[in-house]
């Protein structure tokens, strides 16, 4: 199974047509797939809170948005998640590479990994953790759940899910 393609197929099937991204090595394939799809407008952002602002505007303009980002950025988005996405009740699927988990080669990444789930829990953000490739089967349901509930929802995807970190 090509999980990059499966994820983007699910986005298209759920009418997600506005995607903003800040890269992570693990997300390179899915970002490339997003960029190549005609059904999706891909707009790279420079910082993740900026991207969430773009998504809020796109949602109010009638599009279903999504952000693809690394978990190390969670801290810079807390104010935006609380005072924009949640306060105004807007849906936002967040596909997050969960760096610093099993099979992580870069020790510094662990420092935010240990806070990731705690921060998401503190914000009452529904959180899913993809560890095995087959976990991607849940993605379609998670998207439906996000747009049903009008909430930000986190999908943490670790190195094992992506098939390892790559050349080490």
């Amino acid at each position: 199974m090509n999980i990059d393609k499966k994820i983007v197929d699910d986005l298209v099937a759920n009418d997600v047509s506005f995607v903003t991204t800040v890269p992570c090595k693990q997300l390179a394939g899915v970002i490339e797939e997003v960029e190549n799809r005609d059904e999706i407008f891909h707009i790279p952002s420079n910082k993740e809170d900026e991207g969430m602002g773009l998504c809020a505007g796109a949602f109010m303009g009638g599009k279903r948005p999504m952000i693809i980002m690394q978990n190390t950025a969670l801290g810079v988005t807390l104010n935006t998640l609380a005072t924009l996405t949640q306060f105004y009740r807007m849906p936002l699927p967040m596909l997050i590479s969960y760096r610093g988990e099993l099979r992580e080669p870069v020790s510094c990444q662990v420092e935010m990994a240990v806070h990731t789930k705690a921060l998401l829990a503190q914000l009452n953000i529904p959180t899913y953790h993809f560890h095995w490739q087959k976990d991607v089967e849940e993605f379609d349901n998670i998207l439906k759940y996000t747009f049903m509930s009008n909430k930000p929802v986190a999908i943490l995807t670790d190195a094992n899910f992506w098939g390892g970190y790559g050349d080490q």
Binding site: F18, G53, T80, T83
Partner: peptide, 22 residues
């Protein structure tokens, strides 16, 4: 009018996302 009650800095981003979407 969309009034921002918080989230300093994102007026340009929210408006731009809206402009791109419609």
């Amino acid at each position: 009018n969309f009034y921002m009650l918080g989230t300093m800095g994102l007026s340009s981003s929210i408006g731009f996302g809206l402009a791109l979407a419609q």
